[in-house]
Write a protein that binds this DNA or RNA. Structure first.
Lengths: 111, 111
DNA sequence: TTCTTTTATCGTACAAAAACGATAAATATT
DNA sequence: AATATTTATCGTTTTTGTACGATAAAAGAA
């Protein structure tokens, strides 16, 4: 009886939560920074910078990719990753929207 | 050997990840919406609205509180929760900062 | 072709999260 | 004082996340 009740919530809430989940690990935030700072964005470079095993980094990259936050192209034996700016913008906008919606009703707060 | 390596990352990365983790569940996003929309923000009201058991909601409230996103005052036998706007602002600002830092380097991207 | 490099995936182990019922604690109500 | 209401916490189960080593797959180099 520990089945997650994800579908019991609205699609927007699910999407926002999924986005937040993708960012909910310091390694994945670090990866995004590396992707933004390096021209190369080769998997191996990320592995060198992070204090994690190659397989673990690969796993984090997969999660970011599945969340739609990054893209990855195979380049010979290597893999080149980069940020999906369109998706990033979209989620950033939705987050800001949530923040502002919440803030607009601040006056009603009881505490 | 599945011990999390959280401390191996920068404090800022840890903080952002912790904030994201607090938002990484649709129930907690829904709770924040309820807190913003209702004057009362009594635990019982949240339980009524959410498709979860009382104990589960209480657990989510605890996580939001520990993340610093909400405050809670005991009011007789009831508990009144409200959003901690200061913390919210802080994290929103840090998130926007990350977004913009990343975006500023978009031109360098290789993909 | 053989060997090396690079990365994804598999298998595994442990940790943490998600969900619930039951119960305890605290305050109102009768 | 006894009872009811409200919510936090405990104990438990199941699922998901985190991490690693080992290995497979794919491409380049010898």
């Amino acid at each position: 009886m520990a089945t997650p009740k994800t579908e019991a919530f609205s699609r927007k809430e699910q999407d926002l939560a999924a986005f937040a989940k993708a960012l909910a690990h310091p390694a994945r935030i670090a990866i995004l920074k590396v992707l933004a700072q390096n021209n190369e964005c080769i998997c191996g470079e990320i592995v060198e910078v992070l204090p994690l095993a190659q397989s673990t980094v690969s796993q984090h990259l997969k999660e970011l990719k599945e969340a739609g936050l990054i893209d990855g192209n195979v380049d010979g034996p290597r893999s080149c990753y980069c940020i999906n700016w369109k998706a990033f913008e979209k989620f950033n906008a939705e987050f800001s929207s949530l923040f502002h919606k919440l803030k607009d009703q601040q006056a009603k707060s009881c505490c």
